[in-house]
Nucleic acid binder design. Structure first.
Length: 467
RNA sequence: GGGCUGUUAGCUCAAUUGGCAGAGCAGGGGACUCUUAAUCCCAAGGUUAUAGGUUCGAUUCCUAUACAGCCCA
């Protein structure tokens, strides 16, 4: 697989050049005093402060006996200025051999150029690491989506907005945890390898444990384990981590995706609505300094209370057909081939959800769709459940948890008599307090908050077919 | 799974009706001590995704494959 092009060959030769000069071009630790932004923020006119900084050489402008260049660190870029009369002819000619992409450490005093850019005058430099491959020109960036996903490191390097998006993703996750931690929720970790994949309806990935001699499934949801913890007296828990579903890949689905699940004892789905509002309000306010953001040319206002509408009300509103019972949806689509749940999902996906632009709770789902949710006391056909939507996208799902082990077993049986998680039923038999549960799809939340339309843009290394 | 679109130099993009495959930047050589998409001069860089087919001649038309993107189920 040895790939040789002229460009790679030239860089290999540079490697040899440095070694012949007695410089090993894969250096060691380098102590810095300033990041790029600290240099800029700390600048005082006339102070001539000496700094040590390090970064990747991103551009170069050579003028005979002087060179302007930019080095880049995680915070940004800082201009550096090398002159033959400062470095001496030998070191200056060495400096000329740096390629864009190389990591260098520099030491020198800070000044402002005639054009007003804060710049480090290079008095000493250290080779930190050689780049053996050419970088795409930053000006044009890297646009080829396939290359961007396969070589995300290059994407991050040359596309500033991509780097910023993933920094934002990190902030969102930090803020979510910060809010929940303040509310006394305990972050926990439950098995990703499960012998019965529960908590959702989806095809799991199968793996094998050699020592135990059994097949295991990568989890499709952590739900049943988190509720076991509430049985065990951990009254407020959350887990924010990966789920795996062996299904199609699309702009909204990656086989592994990140989910936040929260459980709160003695609460119900109305508490989960308030929790959702407060949680997202906290995140959005801290991230943007406002509760209003622009997403796909539309202003989204996170100010609570959000719209609350039942599933049947929403269907009636958006199709114009009065629906009060599940069977009524056959008045909208009369397809004998399709089950009621198929028709319902079709109507919700196509007629209802695209209209839910402002944050909206769509509530009170039919019981047949929700085997883990508690029925409404005045109507056992419906459960206390909501999904919430922003920009027409489903971002989360919540319910008053079903804590009746007998009813739960019955519902599992109706769903699939061959795969009943008896241990979970047994846990419920010990007693699950009334409990509200909430799940939020983190990738989709990040998409909504960063105005992105493909999940691959918010996952660092999206799944692709190997080349 | 189905449909549509794309794949040309390291990167970003051209190429007329089927008629010598081009540019900018990067990279190489040279000039230049305040540039910042530096500038100026010179030279180079290609199995047009892959495999076939039609044709005197294919980046261009056809078939298949691979990968990707968008839409649909």
């Amino acid at each position: 697989m040895e790939e040789t092009t002229e460009l790679l060959e030239i860089r290999r030769q540079k490697l040899i050049f440095w070694q012949e000069k007695g410089i090993y071009p894969f250096g060691q630790r380098y102590e810095t005093t300033h990041t790029s932004q600290q240099v800029i923020e700390g600048f005082k006119e006339g102070s001539e402060e000496k700094v040590r900084s390090a970064g990747r050489l991103m551009s170069r402008r050579e003028h005979g006996k002087s060179i302007f260049a930019h080095i880049k660190d995680v915070q940004g870029k800082i201009q550096i200025y090398a002159r033959a009369d400062i470095l001496g002819d030998d070191d200056f000619s060495l400096f000329k051999e740096f390629d864009t992409g190389d990591f260098i450490g520099i030491q020198g005093k800070v000044f402002k150029t005639h054009k007003g850019e804060i710049t480090i005058l290079v008095e000493k430099f250290t080779f930190l690491s050689k780049s053996l491959r050419p970088l795409p020109k930053e000006w044009y960036g890297l646009k080829d989506t396939e290359l961007r996903y396969r070589q995300r490191y290059v994407d991050l390097l040359v596309n500033e907005e991509v780097k910023n998006l993933f920094i934002t993703r990190g902030k969102i996750i930090k803020l979510l945890k910060e809010f929940l931690d303040k509310q006394d929720f305990l972050e926990v970790e439950t098995p990703m390898m499960q012998s019965i994949p529960g908590g959702a309806i989806a095809k799991p990935f199968i793996t094998h444990h050699n020592a135990l001699g059994i097949d295991l499934y990568l989890r499709i949801a952590p739900e049943l384990y988190l509720k076991r913890l509430v049985v065990g007296g951990l009254e407020r828990v959350y887990e924010l981590n990966r789920n795996f579903r062996n299904e199609g890949i699309s702009t909204r689905h990656n086989p592994e995706f990140t989910m936040l699940e929260v459980y709160q004892a003695y609460a119900d789905y109305t508490d989960m609505m308030r929790l959702t509002e407060e949680l997202l309000m906290f995140v959005v306010q801290n991230l943007f300094g406002s509760l209003k953001i622009t997403c796909e040319d539309k202003e989204i206002d996170f100010t609570p209370p959000w719209q609350r509408i039942t599933v049947y009300e929403a269907i009636s509103k958006y199709t114009g057909v009065e629906v009060t019972r599940l069977e009524d949806i056959r008045k909208i689509i009369d397809d004998k081939e399709k089950s009621l749940t198929e028709i319902l999902n079709h109507i919700l996906d196509n007629e209802v959800e695209p209209n839910l632009i402002q944050p909206t709770f769509l509530m009170d789902y039919p019981t047949v769709l929700s085997p883990l949710a508690r029925q409404k006391q005045n109507n056992p056909e419906l459960v206390e459940r909501f999904e919430f939507f922003i920009s027409g996208q489903e971002l989360g799902n919540a319910y008053s948890e079903l804590n009746d082990p007998i009813e739960q077993k019955k519902r599992f049986y109706e769903q699939n008599p061959d795969k009943i998680d008896e241990d979970y039923i047994e846990a419920l038999e010990y007693g699950l307090p009334p409990c509200g549960g909430l799940g939020i799809g983190i990738d989709r939340l990040v998409m909504a908050l960063t105005n992105t339309t493909s999940i691959r843009e918010v996952v660092l290394f999206p799944q692709l077919r190997p080349k």
